[in-house]
Nucleic acid binder design. Structure first.
Length: 1010
RNA sequence: GGGCGAUUAGCUCAGCGGUAGAGCACUACAUUGACAUUGUAGGGGUCACUGGUUCAAUCCCAGUAUCGCCCACCA
C-alpha cells in the first residue's frame, strides 16, 4: 500500500538512482530493434553555471520530448555537456581570486588557466546534479566539455575546433587583419557585435570651432527651405558637433557632404584641431563624403577613424590616417614618442596626403603629454575645458532651445535681449554601447584580430531554412533569423583572454634569405591543428636553420643571431598566437563535435543530423545560426531539422529575472517546496508557443496538487484490489462504463501525442491533466464505487482490470511530464514489474465506443443536473431524495435502470420511480428532453423553484433566439457549412423541447402555489 | 528609424472564424472510507479601441492607443 502522502524529497533521489543504476538513459536504451534514431543536443550550460529558470524550462521541454520518443521505442540520445564560456568563466574565477585579494595578473597565464581547471573540477558538476534533480534523461556517460576533458591538444573536442579553424583558414574563410572592433576595456578584449548591448543614455553634444589654417576666412550662408538667405556671415572656422570630444585628438579630417553649399568654399582646405599644445596644433583636411547629413548638427563631421565605426568607413574610403588614442583599458595612451614629435609626424602625413602603412600610423601617439594616462572621461573633461577657455566653443544665448529644458532660460524682460552667452552643450539621448558581461562602455578600437567570413558561411544556412530543410517552431522566428543572416557582418573570433581554445597559429620571423618576397617580410604564420604539425611546417619553411618553439616570446620576434663568430647562423623561434577563440566558435560545432567528429564515429553516423534543437530566442544569433553555418559546412547537412524556440521565463510582472533586480526565482527552491514534477508540469503547461512565461508560483502549487490527486487515485485503486501491471486486453471489456473510460483514455492519448508531435507542450499537458482529474478521478472513480460496493462479481472483476489498465496508461501518459512520481507509482503498484516506466510503451487508442460514451455522458449530465438543482433548492447534501421520472420513454427507463446505482450514489437519491404525470410539489429538472422530479412537498421553496426555472428559461430562450436568427437568415443557410447548419437545427429543436418542459414545470409550480 | 509581439474573469495565462476556458483568488454548502494538497454547486468577461471583410469576428484585414522585446552608424 502506498504511503499516505507522496514525499518528493525522498522519492526523487531514489528514483533518480534507480534510473542511474539501470543506465536507463544510455544512448539507445529501451529502443526497439532497428528503431529510428532521435537525438537532441543539450544547449550546454556554462561550466560556472547554476540552474536557473531558463535552464529549468529548456531542459524540461527537452526531457519531455526525449522521454516521449524513448517510450515510442526510438533510439534516443540526449547528449549532455558544458560550455567553457570564455569571458563568463574567466570573470567568475577572477572574482573568486579577488576575494583572496589577488588578481589575474599576479599569476602566469598557465597558472591562471590551471586555476580555472581546478575550479571546474571542484564545481563543474553542480549544474549536472541540478539537471538530474529536474529529471533530465541525458546519457550522462557521454558528457562533453567544449574544451575537452582536460584541454589536451589531442582530445577530440579540441581537435574538432582546431580542424575547423585550420580548414576554414585554408579555404580563405578565416583571416587576420587590423579592423575597428568592439573593445571591452574591462576585460581588455575584443568582443563581437552580438556581445554589445546598446542602451539609451543621457549624453551631451558639444559644438566647437575648428579654425581654418592660416587665418583663412569664407562667407558662410544659410538658407531656409525656400532658398531665402537666413544667415550670412564671414567665418574663420568650421563648426563641429561631437558627443566624444576626447576623440578629437585623433581626428584625421573634417567631412562635409559633397553637395553642401555652405562649405563648398573651404573644401580641400585645412583646419586646425582646437586642442593640444598651441605650438603643435595639428591641421587636418576638409574633405567631402556621402556620409555627413547636412541637416544634422552643423553638417560637418570630424573623422576619427580609429574610434568610431562610421568614421572608420569614411577614413577607409578617403585614405585618412586612423590614430589610435587609447590603450587596452581605454585610458589615453602613454606610450611612444613625446607628443611634439608624433604630432609633427602626423602633420607631415596630413600635408603629404599619403597615409603610411597601418602599423606605422598605429605607433603614433597623438595624446598631448598632459593628458597621457588619463581615463577617457577624465580626458574628455580636460579637452572641453581647454577648448572652452580658449574661446573655441560655440557660444549661444542662455535662451537657446537646444540647451534643453534643464537650464531654465532667463525670461527676456523689458525688451532685454540676451543676458549671457553660454557654450552650446546640447542634452541628448543617445544609444551607448555596453559590454553585455562587463557592463562597461565599449570602445571602438583599431586592433589586429581574427575574423570569420560569416557572409559566405551564412548562404547555405540561410537557404536551408528558406527551403524548409530546417524549420523554426514557432515559424515567426524564421524572420528574425533571415534578417540577421542577410545582413551578417564578419565575425570577430579572436579574444584577448586566457581561458579558451588558443588560436592554432604559430608565428615565426621573416625568412632570412628571402628579402623582397612575402616570406622575407613581416612575421610568418604556421597554421596547424597541433603544435607538432606547426613545428614541422616551420622546419620545412626555415630549412637549414635551427627552429625552436617558445610560446613565451612575442609572436614573430626577430630571428636570433647565434654565435659571435658565425653571423650567418640564426635560430628561428616560433611562438603561438596569444589569443583564444570566441566561445561560440566551439559551441557552433556542438552537434557534431559531441558525437566524436573529426573521427567518423558510429554515433556521428547514427545521430547526425540531430532532430530538434530546443533553445531560447536570445541565442538564435549567437548559437543556432552558427551551428547551422558550421554544421552545413563540415557535415554537408543541417545540424537539426527543427528548432523549437521557447520563451524567456520572466517574473510575475514580466520582468526579466536578474540578480541585480533581485527578482530571481530559484528553481531549486521551487523543487524543494513542490517537487520536481510539479515544477516541470507547470513549465510545460505554461510553455505556449510565442509568448513569454511569466511564472506564478501559485500555479506550481496547483499542479503539485494534481500529483497528489493521482497519488490518491492510486491509493483508492489499491484499496479496491485493482490489479496493476496485468496483461489485460482492453478490447474485451463489455460494460459501458469501462468502454467509456477506455474510449476517453484513447482520445486523451491521441490528443497528447498529437500535441507533442507539434511541440504544443501546453496542449499536451492540459489534455493529460483534464483526462486524469476531470474524467478519470471526478467521474470514473466515482462511478466505480457503486460497482465495487455491489455484488456483481463479474462486473467487479472487469472494472478492476480496466481501472488497473487505465492507471498504467495514465502513468505512461504523464511520465514525460512527471517522471518521478509516475515511475514511483509504476514501481510500487505491481509486484514483479521487470520494466522501468521510462522504457514502457507509449499509450495508444484501442477502444473507441461511441455508444458507451453516449450512455455515460447521459449519466454525467443527469447527475450534474440533479446536483445543481439540489444545490440551488438548498436541499441538504445529507438528505437522500426520491426521484420520479415523469412520462419517461422506454429508452429513458432503460438508461435509468442501467445507471440506477450510480445515480443513487452520486446524486444522493434514495429511490427512482416512474410515473405518468408530475407529482405535486416537486422540483422539476429538464434534462435530455425528460422531466425528472424530486417530489419533496414541504421542502420545496416555491419562489426559489420559480427563480431557478426562470433562469433556466432565460438561457434557453437566448439560445433559441440565436439559433432561430441564424436559421432564418437566408445567407447563413446558403453559405454556412452543412455541419454548422445541422448543429444549429439540433440546438434549436433541443431548446424548443426543453422550453416546453420548463414552461410546463413553471405552470405547475405556479398552480400549486395558488 | 526599422521589425516583431502583447492587450481575454480580481491575478497569472490558454484559446483564435461558428454561442468564451484553466490555475489561483472569491461565495455557499459538505468532513463515516482515495484525496481538505479535497468534493459539490456558484458568482465573475460588450475577449483594449475604431473601422472593414464575412452568413458569422475574441479570432482575419486596416488604423488608433498602451506596454514589451529585437535590430539599426545620425556625428
Amino acid at each position: 500500500m502506498l504511503d499516505k502522502n507522496y514525499d518528493a524529497k525522498s522519492v526523487e533521489p531514489r528514483i533518480a538512482k534507480r534510473w542511474d543504476d539501470a543506465n536507463a538513459f544510455a544512448a539507445g536504451a529501451g529502443a526497439k530493434p532497428d528503431a529510428d534514431p532521435f537525438c537532441v543536443v543539450i544547449p550546454p550550460p556554462n561550466v560556472t553555471g547554476s540552474l536557473h529558470m531558463g535552464h529549468a524550462l529548456n531542459n524540461t521541454l527537452q526531457d519531455i520530448l526525449t522521454r516521449y520518443k524513448r517510450m515510442l521505442g526510438q533510439n534516443v540520445l540526449w547528449q549532455p555537456g558544458m560550455d567553457h564560456a570564455g569571458i563568463a568563466t574567466q570573470m567568475v574565477v577572477e572574482r573568486k581570486l579577488a576575494e583572496e585579494g589577488k588578481r589575474r595578473t599576479d599569476f602566469t597565464r598557465e597558472e591562471f588557466v590551471e586555476k580555472i581547471w581546478e575550479w571546474k573540477a571542484e564545481s563543474g558538476g553542480t549544474i549536472f546534479n541540478q539537471l538530474k534533480r529536474l529529471g533530465a534523461s541525458c546519457d550522462w556517460s557521454r558528457e562533453k566539455f567544449t574544451m575537452g576533458e582536460k584541454g589536451e591538444a589531442d582530445d577530440p573536442m579540441v581537435q574538432a575546433v582546431m580542424k575547423v579553424f585550420v580548414d576554414l583558414y585554408n579555404e580563405g574563410l578565416i583571416y587576420r587583419g587590423k579592423r575597428l572592433v568592439n573593445w571591452d576595456p574591462h576585460f581588455e578584449t575584443a568582443i563581437s557585435d552580438l556581445e554589445v548591448e546598446n542602451i539609451e543614455t543621457k549624453g551631451h553634444m558639444w559644438h566647437f570651432k575648428y579654425p581654418l589654417a592660416d587665418g583663412a576666412t569664407y562667407e558662410y550662408v544659410e538658407k531656409d527651405e525656400n532658398g531665402n538667405v537666413t544667415l550670412r556671415e564671414t567665418r574663420d572656422y568650421i563648426s563641429i558637433a561631437t558627443t566624444r570630444p576626447e576623440t578629437m585628438l585623433g581626428d584625421g579630417a573634417v567631412a562635409v557632404r559633397t553637395d553642401d553649399e555652405r562649405y563648398a568654399p573651404i573644401v580641400g582646405k585645412l583646419c586646425e584641431i582646437p586642442v593640444g599644445p598651441k605650438d603643435h596644433r595639428r591641421l587636418i583636411p576638409i574633405i567631402t563624403d556621402e556620409y555627413p547629413d547636412p541637416n544634422f548638427g552643423s553638417g560637418a563631421v570630424k573623422i576619427t577613424g580609429a574610434h568610431d565605426f562610421n568614421d572608420y568607413m569614411v577614413a577607409k574610403r578617403n585614405d585618412i590616417p586612423m590614430y589610435r588614442l587609447m590603450d587596452t583599458k581605454a585610458a589615453m595612451r602613454a606610450d611612444g614618442a613625446p607628443y611634439a614629435d608624433d604630432a609633427a609626424r602626423a602633420m607631415e602625413i596630413a600635408k603629404s596626403g599619403n597615409t603610411p602603412d597601418e602599423n606605422t600610423v598605429d605607433a603614433i601617439n597623438l595624446i598631448p603629454d598632459d593628458l597621457r594616462g588619463l581615463d577617457r572621461y577624465e580626458a574628455r573633461k580636460k579637452v572641453i575645458e581647454q577648448i572652452t577657455s580658449e574661446g573655441l566653443a560655440i557660444m549661444v544665448p542662455e535662451t537657446d532651445p537646444r540647451l534643453g529644458p534643464v537650464k531654465a532660460p532667463l525670461a527676456p524682460e523689458d525688451g532685454d535681449e540676451v543676458r549671457a552667452l553660454v557654450p552650446l552643450v546640447e542634452k541628448k539621448k543617445m544609444q551607448q554601447p555596453y559590454g553585455d558581461r562587463s557592463k562597461v562602455v565599449i570602445e571602438p578600437m583599431l586592433t589586429d584580430q581574427w575574423f570569420c567570413d560569416a557572409e559566405t558561411l551564412a548562404k547555405p544556412a540561410l537557404a536551408a531554412v528558406k527551403e524548409g530543410r530546417t524549420e523554426f517552431v514557432p515559424k515567426s522566428w524564421e524572420n528574425t533569423y533571415f534578417n540577421w543572416m542577410e545582413n551578417i557582418q564578419p565575425w570577430c573570433i579572436s579574444r584577448q583572454l586566457w581561458w579558451g581554445h588558443r588560436i592554432p597559429v604559430w608565428y615565426g620571423p621573416a625568412h632570412p634569405d628571402r628579402r623582397g618576397t612575402p616570406e622575407g617580410k613581416g612575421r610568418q604564420m604556421f597554421v596547424a591543428t597541433t603544435e607538432e604539425e606547426a613545428f614541422e611546417q616551420a622546419k620545412k619553411f626555415y630549412e637549414g636553420y635551427e627552429v625552436v618553439l617558445n610560446n613565451n616570446v612575442a609572436p614573430g620576434a626577430a630571428a636570433t643571431q647565434l654565435g659571435d663568430e658565425e653571423p650567418r647562423y640564426f635560430e628561428m623561434t616560433i611562438s603561438r598566437d596569444k589569443d583564444v577563440l570566441d566561445t561560440w566558435f566551439s559551441s557552433a560545432l556542438w552537434p557534431f563535435s559531441t558525437l566524436g567528429w573529426p573521427e567518423n564515429t558510429k554515433e556521428l553516423q547514427t545521430y547526425y543530423q540531430t532532430d530538434v534543437l530546443v533553445t531560447g530566442f536570445d541565442i538564435i544569433f549567437f548559437w543556432v545560426a552558427r551551428m547551422m553555418m558550421m554544421g552545413l559546412h563540415f557535415q554537408k547537412e543541417e545540424p537539426f531539422h527543427t528548432v523549437y524556440v521557447h520563451a524567456l521565463v520572466r517574473d510575475k510582472d514580466g520582468q526579466k529575472m536578474s540578480k541585480s533586480k533581485g527578482n530571481v526565482v530559484d528553481p531549486l527552491d521551487l523543487m524543494d517546496e513542490y517537487g520536481a514534477d510539479a515544477l516541470r508540469f507547470t513549465l510545460a503547461i505554461m510553455a505556449a508557443q510565442g509568448r513569454d512565461v511569466k511564472l506564478d508560483t501559485t500555479r506550481i502549487a496547483g499542479y503539485r496538487n494534481f500529483g497528489t490527486k493521482l497519488w490518491n487515485a492510486t491509493k483508492f485503486a489499491q484499496m479496491n484490489d485493482v490489479p496493476m501491471g496485468q496483461d489485460f486486453d482492453p478490447t474485451t471489456a463489455t460494460s459501458p462504463l469501462n468502454r467509456w473510460i477506455l474510449t476517453e483514455l484513447g482520445r486523451a492519448a491521441a490528443e497528447v501525442t498529437d500535441a507533442l508531435d507539434r511541440y504544443r507542450f501546453n496542449d499536451a499537458a492540459g489534455a493529460a491533466y483534464r483526462f486524469v482529474w476531470n474524467t478519470f478521478c471526478d467521474w470514473h472513480l466515482e462511478l466505480l464505487k457503486p460497482v465495487f460496493n455491489g455484488d456483481d462479481e463479474a462486473a467487479k472483476t472487469e472494472a478492476r482490470a480496466v481501472a488497473g489498465y487505465v492507471l498504467d496508461q495514465i502513468y505512461a501518459l504523464l511520465h514525460p511530464f512527471m517522471p518521478f512520481m509516475t515511475e514511483e507509482l509504476w514501481q510500487q503498484t505491481a509486484n514483479g514489474r521487470d520494466t522501468l516506466l521510462c522504457h514502457a510503451a507509449w499509450p495508444t487508442a484501442v477502444v473507441d465506443d461511441e455508444a458507451a460514451a453516449d450512455s455515460i455522458n447521459w449519466l454525467i449530465e443527469v447527475v450534474s443536473e440533479i446536483r445543481s438543482a439540489r444545490s440551488e433548492m438548498n436541499i441538504k447534501p445529507s438528505l437522500m431524495v426520491p426521484l420520479v421520472v415523469a412520462n419517461g420513454d422506454n429508452e429513458t427507463r432503460s438508461l435509468f435502470d442501467t445507471h440506477q446505482a450510480a445515480i443513487e450514489r452520486l446524486a444522493r437519491v434514495e429511490t427512482i420511480s416512474f410515473a405518468d404525470s408530475v407529482p405535486d410539489g416537486a422540483a422539476q429538472i429538464v434534462v435530455s428532453g425528460q422531466t425528472i422530479c424530486i417530489p419533496l412537498a414541504g421542502l420545496i421553496n416555491f419562489d426559489a423553484e420559480i427563480a431557478r426555472l426562470d433562469k433556466d428559461l432565460k438561457g434557453i430562450e437566448k439560445d433559441i433566439a440565436q439559433a432561430q436568427g441564424k436559421l432564418n437568415n437566408e445567407k447563413f443557410v446558403a453559405n454556412a457549412p452543412e455541419a454548422v447548419i445541422e448543429e444549429n437545427k439540433a440546438r434549436l429543436a433541443d431548446r424548443q423541447n426543453r422550453r416546453e418542459k420548463v414552461l410546463a414545470a413553471l405552470a405547475r409550480v405556479r398552480d400549486s402555489q395558488s
